[in-house]
Amino acid sequence: MLKNEDSKPNHWLTAALLMPTTMWFVFMLILPLIVILIFSFGERAAVGGYAASFTFEQYANLPSRLKAFQNTMIFAPIGTLLSLFMAYPLAYYLALRVDRRYKFILLVLVIVPFWTSLLIRTYAWIFILGGRGIPLMLEWIGIEGVRLVNTPGAVLIGIVYGYLPLMVFPIFVSLEKIDKNLLEASNDLGGTPFKTFMQITLPLSMLGVATGCMLVFILLMGEFLIPAFLGGGKVFFIGNALVDLFLQSRNWPFGSAVSVTLVVIMLITVSLYMRLTMRTKTGRDESLM
């Protein structure tokens, strides 16, 4: 009796609270996906855009964008790994080494660049890597003819720069959560600092590493700004192909087919990755609570 009376208003409240999320989910995610799926089986209208039809032509045409897929599938994992190797030491230092008093300031410094738009910051990199930036300085010390901008290396620099905070924060949080007594206990039991890191610190921060890699990887798969600016048309991602197909050549059906393929590739990689990381640390999260 009492239970029924109690649960009824709760039921409505739950529904009401979930409403905005549900709406967002349906209108911003599910519907567009369905639209794109439908478009991908259509034809390009004569003036551009979509014309209703049912054909696999767009999918048959995918190999013409093979280079973009290849680039994305190479640069996204490499960029993720590079960000990880840059971010881990920084997160480690912030979480475990730095004096409590400076921790907050240093954390803020990691996010400060985010206060300016990525567009402007990437422009800045064009200048830094361009003829009057680092190459000029190298000339002063006698190293001539270095080209940085419009190379794959420039794209990777841009990626690491842009995505570093996304990698630093999850790792920082997981390192910060580790009970410092565990590290002392390991030392106390004869573990050298290196062994302590390998056997205690690293395994206990894997959740943060996994989260950070996932975030960066997924976002990198859709990246278009950095390759467009720093790759100079030589290094282009699927994102650039999509910009081209939807905005320039207005071939919506083909663009949709590329998008659907990207989503499928992402789902497969991410679920494989999840399966891999989950298996190695079943139940650990409970213990960290």
Partner: peptide, 13 residues
């Protein structure tokens, strides 16, 4: 020397 910590500090993983 070895220590037994107040919160035990057992390795959770």
């Amino acid at each position: 020397v070895n220590m037994v910590f107040q919160n035990y500090a057992l390795f959770p993983h």
